[in-house]
Write a protein that binds this DNA or RNA. Structure first.
Length: 487
RNA sequence: GCCCCCAUCGUCUAGCGGCCCAGGACACCGCUCUUUCACAGCGGCAGCACGGGUUCGAAUCCCGUUGGGGGCACCA
């Protein structure tokens, strides 16, 4: 069992593409097969090293390790197609010699013109004109200084593709035009290079997006030629994954922000959550369960369970699932995951100081059930990391204060100044005595002013624990500050 | 235009002829818990696109219609 992931390095990693990688990886790991990573960089104009690096980073982030590929090597190295030119030139030559392909001189304009002249739809595609030219005709084209492309001859029978996900798919004879595999300038195209490498590298299963289904008959025909020429052992089995759609039922394109893997990472999706959600797009682990780990995915994954209908990207579901994974994390792991987000929010400069780390160790467990994505952490934890005088009291928190707020703050301050033990339990009973019992304010409203004073927000981690973490000095300063503000 | 794919709650899906007057999850709406918000728990709303067959019996099989999507490059 050998599967592969073969992106072309253009742009940033796309969630649809990474999902294909995930399914291939999961299938390999489930079956004990080999996961090959190959780079399809035959389009020098669009390919970039940055994109290549980003894909590698994306795979690493998601935890999709590969057994063969750039950087790790393997029996079929090199794994970058730009380094395999000789092979392709060789195969192209043999394809021509053995009659599977032929030189084609027609320009697209000429093809269209012929269709028009014959009363056919001009957009029908290549018409096979150059299939059986006489030597004299060929010479005439040469004399004009033309350079031919190389086209593979499609058979005159139907091509039947047995798809792992969709069953038998029949492409009627004549519905797929002969296709170009080598440009006039000698550059091999994806149409050649992809089947050649799959064949030569012994790929047994090709799991890829449904957008490639209609190019499958061409690849099957080429694979058959490769097998007949002794260059490959088999035609791989194909399985076409349902497309991932964006808003408005369109294929998720690079233009859509949801398609950008790293944007989700910035938003604070965990790789665990991302893997889970991606796998759920077209696959399910059990009738009554949809939260699972990477290991559980590997354990349960089977291509036969992949559905055929397209799936819409649902950000809410992705984040809800992420919340589940976030809660499954050990607190110290969550702390580490949260740090980059605190840094990019400007709350942390490099590594936390020992004091900051202590605060975070206390606070992270308090916010673990309160986040779905990591980018919520700065808002929740910021009050602990910011100096007292820089605490921003948010507008809506101020607006929510009731008339008795000043009295509440006064009573609270009085109750807390001389508190003997500064811990959450002691703080709570002191405050309850002072505000709930003392002032007769209902518990639901009693602590709002304090929360606002101390955290600057209406919504925060639990108040008494927050006070404990913040410490008496800061707490008193903040209470006094808001009290002054209320006049 | 041609070829191909798809069709169960708003969304992701379970269902592979009787277990289904269709199950789960997200979302949404209530309630409980509660120092805010969450989490958790409980409850609710909501679907087999339509029409023909086949069958004792169809969400499940077949055909058609409609709807949606993908592909038709000297891109990948």
């Amino acid at each position: 069992m050998r599967v592969r992931f073969c992106p072309s390095p253009t742009g940033t990693p796309h969630v649809g593409v990474m999902r294909a990688a995930l399914f291939n990886w999961a299938y390999a790991r489930h079956t004990g097969g080999t996961f090959v990573f190959r780079v399809e960089d035959t389009d020098a104009a669009r390919d970039s090293q940055e994109s290549m690096d980003a894909i590698v980073e994306g795979l690493a982030w998601l935890g999709l390790d590969y057994d063969e590929g750039p950087g790790v090597g393997g029996p079929h190295a090199p794994y970058r197609q730009s380094e395999r030119r000789d092979l392709y030139a060789d195969v192209a030559r043999r394809l021509l010699e053995e009659g599977y392909a032929y030189e084609s001189w027609s320009t697209p304009e000429e093809v269209e013109e012929r269709h028009r002249a014959a009363g056919r739809d001009p957009k029908l595609g290549y018409d096979g004109f150059d299939r059986d030219l006489t030597p004299a005709q060929v010479q005439a084209f040469r004399d004009q200084g033309r350079e031919p492309v190389l086209r593979v001859r499609m058979p005159d029978e139907d091509v039947v593709v047995s798809d792992l996900v969709r069953g038998e798919v029949v492409f009627p004879a004549g519905s797929v035009p002969d296709f170009v595999v080598v440009r006039a300038n000698g550059q091999p195209l994806y149409t050649l290079v992809n089947p050649v490498d799959d064949g030569v590298m012994g790929i047994t299963h090709v799991l890829r997006g449904e957008d490639l289904l209609s190019s499958t008959p061409r690849q099957v025909v080429l694979h058959r030629a490769l097998v007949e020429m002794g260059l490959s052992q088999r035609v791989p089995q194909f399985g076409h994954l349902p497309l991932v759609l964006g808003e408005g039922n369109r294929k998720l394109s690079k233009r859509d922000p949801e398609s950008d893997l790293f944007l989700h990472r910035e938003r604070g999706l965990l790789p665990e959550g991302m893997v889970n959600y991606l796998a759920l797009l077209g696959w399910s682990i059990a009738p009554d369960r949809d939260v699972f780990t990477r290991e559980e995915l590997v354990e349960a994954f089977d291509v036969r369970d992949i559905g055929a209908n397209p799936a819409r990207w649902d950000q809410k579901k992705a984040e809800a699932l992420n919340g589940d994974h976030l809660r499954m994390l050990a607190p110290e792991v969550l702390l580490d995951r949260v740090l980059p987000h605190l840094r990019s929010a400007g709350l942390l400069d490099g590594d936390p100081t020992p004091a900051q780390r202590r605060l975070l160790e206390g606070a992270v467990p308090l916010v673990q059930t309160r986040m779905a994505v990591l980018s919520e952490a700065p808002g929740m934890l910021g009050f602990l990391l910011v100096p007292d005088e820089e605490l921003v009291v948010e507008e809506d928190a101020l607006g929510a204060l009731r008339p008795e707020a000043a009295d509440v703050l006064d009573a609270s301050a009085a109750a807390l100044v001389d508190l003997v033990d500064w811990d959450a339990a002691a703080v709570e009973s002191a405050l309850r005595a002072a505000v709930v019992d003392g002032l007769g304010v209902k518990p639901k409203f009693a602590f709002g002013p304090l929360r606002t004073a101390v955290t600057g927000r209406r919504i925060s981690p639990p108040l008494f624990e927050s006070l404990e973490l913040l410490g008496r000095e800061s707490s008193m300063l903040r209470i006094a500050a808001l009290r002054r503000r209320l006049g």
